[in-house]
Design a protein around this nucleic acid. Structure first.
Lengths: 332, 332
DNA sequence: ACCAAGAATGGTAGCGCTACCATTCTCTTT
DNA sequence: AAAGAGAATGGTAGCGCTACCATTCTTGGT
């Protein structure tokens, strides 16, 4: 079987059809430089008649500006990244940039390989999740003459640009909130922390604050798998089997927390009197549950927007901390 | 401010550094054609020493094969498309293809504009949601020498390739199921059907089957907005305010149904004895709720995988119906 | 030692555009 | 009417690669 790409209509053909030079067509199409109204009309007419679609590959090669922005993200199922992508792609589109993406599955080695293959497209920028990258990734990014943006974290040293919020601070504030509400026997249900290092940062900071507050973490249940509602439910079930007398549980995120919430509903555990639940992310769904979730709302869409804005503006290296918002809710 | 793209290392420089010709470097890098082991080693060494990253832009222009697959999808927030993308991108990556995407927000005009800008990258294929496109989109796609895949629907005439399942059949089976279970006063809560035409197909087919079964739809509440858990909850609330004596409600999808489920939980409406709930999509979350959802599970990830496979194999035009699975659940 | 046949390599013409420079065509201005 | 400024246009050299062809080295067979 044979591939054949794209109608063979080229700029040269348009030029001939319109009876003008190639450079004139190029100028009209990019609306750059000067040309008369008549000429423009003839060019446009020829373009429409021939159904010409400019070849950006050639254009990019000639002008050294790909207007492509590469996203190398851990997962697509996780709404967090979908939100970031959504925020970013709106801004990028408005500025004639295009998003390309690849999924690492939280694997740093895959990240490295994917960054390499992305770089081959000479993107304007590469967007990555967090600060934890392989040496190879860092080296490539430094060598490449393109911007990089590290997303959803600000606890670390940025390569170039970074946009997000402090996961340490989030963990800290979550712990403080629970302590202030009087919970003392606190547990944790989480997913694979080696892979999701941002969740790991929240967790360790959470634990430190609890200890400092005189009520160190009582027990935790960590599934070595991706976060999901199901794992949250299973995790809480196992945690409570082992340690039934907890009065509050901190979840690695709202998906996990929702699973825990369902477990409580199913078992008739009343929230928050018998058991308090606290999550992370501030998903929309947590506002619609019978009891609104106590959680931390993160500016995910804004993270994408700001990141995209910095890139299209070619802003100088900087770290933008967008902060987060603690939602008191009714589950803790 | 000035952009500067990528280290200026070119294949020619690698060739010089390795003391071989350009074509030899190209052959080694693509592992195509013949060359000696010594030569390969010298080339590889030079590549590593210089930190050379091949320029795919130039490569594509020279070889007329972009290995880019464009996704023009309605939304990223909707897990459905994220699932499709996930399935597809795994297959594409394994075959050295790259996914590029753009979001239409369910607007056919935007779809047209985005398809045009995607075509400029001379993609191997363009992936679209459903069959409803503007004339302009269809014309471009026909003219362009690239494959197209219409996803998540098979009720219509495909442009080229199509992968999905029948939304009409889904609506039909949902109605039959509710009728068989003895529900007679059935309502519907949905989101914007003009935009999500696949939901529209399910709904109309659902209604037809109900009527044929002697229990025509009693009432419906349609929000002219995107589907969301929140709109599901609000929708059911309004529907029940107007028509309290329904015995079952069909939702446009599981997100909406989950909102309805939460409404019932909050109001103490017992499911399914007082009110039955039936959804669509078979989201994971519906398996973890205290009562598993009655719904139709759609092969979303598989849709992406199959679509990608057809594209990388350059399969002849065809429509692949992946079917779906009715989940009896406990909510209807 | 000689000759195919094939392996290994190098040279180079594009791919379709844009950037840059050269040229031609208006108009004022004096 | 001549000159100059600026608008409008065309020609063309690459951008960095790959495809193709030409050439040069190895082989093994006789």
């Amino acid at each position: 079987m044979d591939f054949k790409y794209q109608s063979a209509v080229t700029l040269a053909q348009v030029a001939e059809a319109a009876g003008v030079g190639e450079s004139t067509v190029s100028r009209v199409l990019r609306n750059h430089g000067s040309f008369s109204g008549k000429t423009r009309d003839r060019v446009i007419a020829a373009v429409e008649r021939l159904g010409y679609v400019p070849n950006r590959i050639a254009g990019t090669l000639a002008s050294a500006g790909s207007r492509l922005v590469a996203f190398v993200i851990p997962s697509l199922s996780n709404i967090v990244f979908a939100d970031v992508l959504r925020g970013a792609s709106a801004i990028l589109e408005a500025n004639q940039h295009q998003a390309v993406f690849a999924v690492t599955d939280y694997d740093p080695q895959r990240e490295e390989a994917l960054v390499a293959s992305m770089l081959a497209w000479r993107p304007t920028a590469v967007m990555l999740a967090g600060y934890e990258h392989t040496q190879g990734t860092v080296k490539m990014l430094r060598a490449a003459n393109c911007r990089s943006v590290e997303l959803l974290d600000v606890d670390g040293t940025a390569l170039d640009l970074a946009v997000g919020f402090s996961n340490r601070a989030a963990g800290h504030e979550s712990a403080q909130f629970l302590l202030k509400r009087g919970y003392r026997r606190i547990g944790y249900v989480g997913h694979d922390l080696n892979r999701d290092t941002r969740a790991g940062k929240r967790f360790s900071s959470f634990c430190e604050t609890l200890s400092a507050g005189g009520a160190p973490l009582v027990d935790c249940e960590i599934h070595a798998a991706a976060s999901s509602v199901e794992n949250g439910r299973l995790g809480l079930e196992q945690l409570l089997t082992r340690t039934p007398d907890l009065d509050a549980v901190y979840f690695s995120n709202d998906d996990m927390a929702l699973g825990g919430y369902f477990h409580c509903l199913a078992r008739g555990i009343s929230i928050p009197s018998q058991l308090a639940i606290f999550g992370y992310n501030g998903l929309d769904i947590g506002r619609v549950t019978p009891q609104p979730f106590s959680t931390i709302r993160t500016p995910r869409v804004a993270t994408g927007q700001v990141a995209a804005k910095l890139v299209v503006d070619n802003a100088p290296p900087q770290v933008v901390d967008l902060g987060f918002q603690l939602i008191e809710g009714a589950t803790a």
